[in-house]
Design a protein around this nucleic acid. Sequence first.
DNA 1: CACCGGGCATGACAAATGTCAGAAGGCGTC
DNA 2: GACGCCTTCTGACATTTGTCATGCCCGGTG
Lengths: 205, 205
Amino acid sequence: MTAAPVRVLLADDEHLIRGALAALLSLEEDLVVVAEAATGPEALAMARAHAPDVAVLDLQMPGADGVKVATSLRAELPSCKVLIVTSHGRPGHLKRALAAGVRGFVPKTTSAQRLAELIRTVHAGNRYVDPELAADAISAGDSPLTAREAEVLEHAADGAPVAEIAERAALAEGTVRNYLSSAAGKLGAENRHAAVRLARERGWV
Amino acid sequence: MTAAPVRVLLADDEHLIRGALAALLSLEEDLVVVAEAATGPEALAMARAHAPDVAVLDLQMPGADGVKVATSLRAELPSCKVLIVTSHGRPGHLKRALAAGVRGFVPKTTSAQRLAELIRTVHAGNRYVDPELAADAISAGDSPLTAREAEVLEHAADGAPVAEIAERAALAEGTVRNYLSSAAGKLGAENRHAAVRLARERGWV
DNA sequence: CACCGGGCATGACAAATGTCAGAAGGCGTC
DNA sequence: GACGCCTTCTGACATTTGTCATGCCCGGTG
């Protein structure tokens, strides 16, 4: 069976990896890298121009992260399957990615050989999620935070004082303190800063 | 001139990159990858076993980071030149790396082609530092923090309350607060948490 | 030697933060 | 409509924090 090769888009801001990967994937006879991109917007533009079968996206890229790109892609190019590759697997990201219609989600500790297989898997219409990441996501569970709690936590992310958070969120200071307090309580954190760290780790912010 | 090929050790925790890189570098006739490692200690062990000419190390690896490995390597295997590759170029890291006797320091946005050239450059006894990273390091300047300030700031990194920091650093709470305060002042931060963030960004912790 | 400046430490005070109880409005469910 | 839950706010309080004045010790300078 000599079907048409799978057309792949590669997006990663690290040239070293992108180039190396492109070279390795080209070794596979049934795969062809038709486009490369270093940023989110670039990936989107490339996808529009080349209409690849599968898009391999890094999770963290300048401009727009992999999940955002996947969301846009899903709307504009539904036939293009998305496979996300990431270095730091945060549980929450996996959930967001799946919600965005991503078909595959694997850590960068995967070998190139395996990645090639997964590209085929995804192209065939199947899904694949790294078992370890999936386990993490399940054990981390859903975010216990309400929408406002998460929002306020996000505003607190850079260590800003309560007054500033209140202004940015257009809330009273007391209200902000309450949300921060309840969020920290739910996360089992000593204070809001530790809470921010925890929420970050779990991908809840 | 068909000199003996340059023997290279490759250390990076991301299998995808390591493998791809190994494949690409092997394409170069005068380079041969003699060992691979996924963690700091593993890199060290591999270096001892294979005595490579050049060690290409990722800055962030489990176990021990690239700079620590470089330090040990310098003591144990002085003939082995170290080239550090990093995704997130923090100015301070560059300084630490050079102090550890590292011969090259480049971001992962470098192409594999260029990396191969740099391996030769480094092997020939020359140094190379990415110009942009160098500029960052220079503009960021030296850490204005005293040893104690930096130490306390490090203990404060995970958002722990002052009491805990005081215990860990074996200082009085008031003293800790003072160091934190002066550090925040020097960094132009609103509070210690923002200070931690800034110091992190500049690689001063 | 006397002096100065910087690093180090402390305690006291003021400001920011975390905690709690309570109350009012909105929204969805049974 | 009664109930529960989220959101928003308020005020009061305890705790944590940031800031300041102060003192000690040490290495260098004149």
